[in-house]
Nucleic acid binder design. Structure first.
Length: 199
DNA sequence: TGAATGATTTACT
DNA sequence: GTAAATCATTCAA
């Protein structure tokens, strides 16, 4: 594989639904001192605050946690939930528009041994990266990744194969009322690493 | 200051 | 299928 190159800022500076769909098939790359992890993104969700009741930025809530979403596109929004899991998001659109794409699943490509070690699972296991919390643990993405610029070469997206993309309702946001049914989840229907079957 | 809760995962029945 | 794990963040007072 040739050296992956970070996608330009313009990739992220578009409406969040377009970015969420465009992310399917792109490569996620994380370089650390312990090694490099690479995976192909196979599942994402769009969160379009402040109107979207499911988004942390709903109602324009601007706090220490959500601050990065109000900044320029192409940065990492990483948050911690359920007392044990991190989630990796991509800030999109434009400064002042708190829209983000949640990366829910990837297919491991490189650095699989490190992922297996961090997940304490066999390297062939599908459970390595088939969920938003799982891939963060596998890729060693934690609070240190909060706010990172995805146009730098530490944590970034790179071009990948063009994939036929399907959509469905988002997962795990039953508190959001009617917003649950919006088809803002995108995935590669051919991948065995999507976090679950069509709801 | 305190109580509620969550963009999940894992283990167990 | 259900439930426990576990704590930063949020909001009410």
């Amino acid at each position: 594989m040739s050296e992956p190159v970070p996608l330009p800022r313009e990739f992220y500076a578009r409406p969040v639904l377009r970015v969420a769909r465009a992310c399917i098939g792109k490569l996620l790359v994380h370089r650390t001192k312990h090694g490099t992890s690479v995976g192909r993104i196979v599942e994402t969700e769009a969160y379009r605050g402040p109107a979207d009741r499911a988004a942390h930025s709903f109602g324009g809530r601007r706090t220490a946690r959500t601050e990065v979403m109000f900044g320029p596109p192409g940065h990492a929004y990483v948050f911690f939930v359920y007392g044990m899991h991190y989630q990796f998001n991509i800030v999109t659109t434009r400064e002042g528009a708190p829209h983000a794409v949640l990366v829910r699943a990837v297919e491991p490509l490189l650095g699989i041994d490190g992922m297996a070690k961090r997940r304490n699972l066999p390297s062939a296991s599908r459970d390595l990266t088939n969920g938003p919390g799982k891939l963060c643990q596998a890729f060693a993405i934690g609070k240190q990744a909060y706010g990172l610029d995805l146009c730098d070469s530490e944590l970034f997206l790179a071009d990948g194969p063009r994939i036929r993309t399907a959509s469905s309702a988002r997962i795990g946001i039953d508190y959001a009322g009617d917003w649950v049914q919006k088809p803002w989840r995108f995935y590669d229907p051919k991948s065995r690493y999507v976090s679950r079957a069509r709801p």
